[in-house]
């Protein structure tokens, strides 16, 4: 038996209370979503879920486009992530290991935009995307999504720490420049690529302001935009709103629980904010 220690009691209660505060909003969202609610929720909050999927059924039948929104969000997040893990690694490699005219100028150009609020770009971006005839299509999200430069910066920092001897050995063995990248550099970058992939996927899945601006028709919405509009559309049917929000949050939560280690590693590498 350990001696009763009041200081430790305070510490533990603080940790437990903050854990509850941290998890409660999401928990309550899910208990509400899993309890049949038509109309207004009860005045006594539902704290134990009924594990009924009635709200979800009404969500999928009542909203015409919920599955479209999911597919749209997935498409955008996947496409942008694929782009970044390949091309950011490629560019990061060039900036980290190659000396070529203008390399520093170009890299500083990239770096200097990291601090600029993304909102600055939205008005011209809207005009450009409109000129390209891509407003209200998923391209309107994918193309600007590929322009995020954080990954180049992250991959450059990571690749700089890799020894150059392996590359030289591969070159002597007759590897082409792309071969060196593909067979030597890329495999060594896996931890950084994992962090970058998670960061990019989550960021694009959760993105809201630009999609609200660029998308117009309900069937083209991404999940965040669609869910934000549920409140206007189903004002009084809270069951649909709860389940819509819960189902939009669920994939990222599952994703996090599965790849927790990589998430927290990514935060440490500076890749993921939250």
């Amino acid at each position: 038996m350990r001696r009763f220690n009041p200081a430790m009691m305070v510490v533990w209660s603080f940790l437990i209370v903050t854990t509850i505060i941290s998890l409660f909003p999401m928990y309550w969202l899910f208990t509400n979503a899993l309890t049949p609610i038509q109309g207004t929720p009860p005045l006594t909050p539902i704290l134990i879920p009924a594990f009924s999927f009635e709200n979800f059924e009404r969500l999928l039948t009542g909203t015409k486009h919920y599955t479209n929104w999911m597919i749209n969000s997935l498409t955008v997040a996947f496409a942008v992530t694929l782009w970044h893990i390949f091309f950011d690694t490629l560019a990061g490699y060039a900036f980290a290991k190659k000396k070529f005219p203008l390399n520093n100028v170009l890299f500083w150009m990239i770096l200097s935009t990291l601090m600029i609020p993304i909102h600055v770009t939205f008005i011209p971006l809207y005009i450009i995307i409109r000129e390209m005839g891509l407003l209200d299509t998923l391209w309107a999200l994918i193309l600007p999504g590929t322009a995020n430069v954080f990954g180049i910066f992250l991959m450059r920092q990571y690749i700089q720490t890799l020894p150059s001897e392996l590359e030289d050995a591969a070159r002597i063995d007759g590897c082409s420049e792309f071969g060196v990248f593909w067979h030597v550099i890329a495999p060594l970058c896996q931890p950084a690529i994992a962090a970058l992939a998670i960061f990019t996927f989550v960021r694009n899945w959760n993105d809201f302001l630009w999609p609200v601006i660029a998308l117009n028709k309900a069937q083209n919405y991404t999940l965040t935009v669609g869910v934000a509009n549920l409140q206007n559309e189903f004002m009084t049917d809270w069951g649909i709103i709860f389940s819509g929000a819960a189902l939009a949050a669920l994939p990222m939560i599952v994703f996090f629980l599965l790849f927790q280690r990589y998430f927290l590693e990514g935060v440490r590498m500076g890749a993921i904010k939250g």
Binding site: F208, M252, F256
Partner: peptide, 13 residues
């Protein structure tokens, strides 16, 4: 993990 979990969902949700 308990503190981080909500941060993976969007600011909107």
């Amino acid at each position: 993990a308990a503190y981080y979990l909500p941060a993976v969902t969007s600011a909107l949700i």
